[in-house]
Design a protein around this nucleic acid. Structure first.
Lengths: 246, 246
DNA sequence: TTATTATTGTCTCATTATGGAACAATAATA
DNA sequence: TATTATTGTTCCATAATGAGACAATAATAA
């Protein structure tokens, strides 16, 4: 959902958008050694949902995804991957959306465009937790980070969407780390230690990795640049700092 | 495209289908050591296209895919994977479809539903070359196997779709071989030699593999059952026959 | 009948990758 | 100054893979 649908009176039929087509976003951020995603909450409904949006009639699908992401996070140049398109009839349940609209004081007819069946293209994004400015859409009240392993109940099939996003992310970790822009860069500070990077890997994969093997592998990939030593603050040898090359 | 759109007069607005949403299929078959895909040809137009179809309003997306595949191949129980959804505005070019319809003697108005913008969900399928009965859809004249490395020019972005399908298939080869049903089974006869399986791998990957390593790896996966020896016909030791377990 | 040929199944050994532990180095703290 | 925790690196055992060798053998040729 995006600014364009509010006030609903200005776009009563959703006529700027391709009908029946939506996007849902699993937006990952990393903070304090925990993987988080952005969720929208609808006050007085106990409903939580993934940020979503619609595609304009004169807009590329992937451009629409970037536009909506910018609206929800204030960030452009986001690491973004399309991962699956969800089209089960079971998605077509009017109850949650009707509840949300009623909690807003809106009384939609059965024909309201937001109550129609939607096919939804799933995207996952990796963003800098510290730079994002989470912004609710016109129908929701908050846009907040939630720990991935402590999510509230999500409406419709959004829990499935999160599961599939995480599964795809995990499967693509190694393959997508190399290349001009790494998925890991937006999740880490400019300069980071090898332990930081390993913790990030472990958090995403949900399993521990061997320290020496991890260091050996990362260095052999030739994608890291070693900087001067860091001030650690810990009672131990200070680790090197790294940044992604180029 | 499917039976339901012909004659067009019976479904003038495509009103049985979700508007603006299509599916495109890259249907792989393997024959005489070559990887082939099914293409539709439109007589008097020089246009070739991937088989495609639309989703009914009361149908799951993935069920629609199986329905259309059955229409084009006569096969059910097909190995099928959704791999990407294509939504660039550049797809929205009325010229090819208008040419196709005109070659059929149809003169669509600018508003004809087939001339609208479509977002298309891409699927790839792996099917038994010998069991399929390729069947053109109502607008096309032939549905024929083409060698993957000798394709004719395809309309719209269909060449991109093929490229992405092959790329996904290659990346998933090892991961998807194991499990209840292997991608390879539909592309090979009931019983096959290790050389057959290796040739199939090599053809899909587009590169040679080492024989001893390949054999070692396949046997270690524990997914093959070794049968009695085969009658070879070749002037050499007869190889074992295998079939996929269970 | 015997030799030839091509391909197979398996083995060997070198090379490379990975698991798991060891160890000295050292920044902060006690 | 000693202690502590963590680091960067090394080592070695184990596993995986690359590359080739070799005897076995079904069909064919001689």
């Amino acid at each position: 959902m995006s600014e364009q649908i509010m006030p609903l009176e200005e776009n009563p039929g959703g006529s700027d958008f391709l009908p029946g087509l939506a996007m849902d976003f699993v937006i990952f951020g990393f903070h304090q050694y925990q993987l988080k995603i952005l969720l929208l909450e609808y006050r007085n409904t106990d409903l939580f949902a993934l940020p979503g949006g619609f595609v304009k009639k004169q807009e590329n699908l992937n451009d629409a995804a970037r536009r909506v992401l910018a609206e929800r996070t204030s960030l452009t140049n986001i690491y973004l991957e399309q991962f699956y398109t969800f089209g089960d009839l079971a998605r077509y349940d009017q109850v949650p959306m009707r509840t949300i609209m009623q909690a807003k004081g809106l009384v939609p007819t059965d024909e309201h465009w937001l109550l129609h069946r939607f096919i939804s293209v799933g995207y996952y994004a990796l963003i800098d937790f510290t730079k994002a400015v989470p912004t609710p859409d016109p129908l929701s009240d908050t846009c907040t980070w939630y720990d991935l392993d402590n999510l509230p109940g999500l409406m419709l099939d959004h829990a499935d969407i999160v599961r599939k996003a995480l599964q795809t992310l995990r499967a693509d970790l190694d393959r997508k780390l190399i290349g001009y822009d790494s998925w890991a860069a937006p999740l880490l500070p400019e300069a980071f230690t090898m332990a930081d990077l390993q913790k990030l890997y472990e958090t995403i994969l949900g399993q521990k990795l061997r320290r020496s093997s991890f260091q050996r592998k990362m260095l052999s990939l030739n994608i890291l640049e070693r900087l001067e030593k860091q001030y650690s603050g810990g009672a131990h040898k200070a680790p090197y700092l790294y940044q992604f090359k180029q």
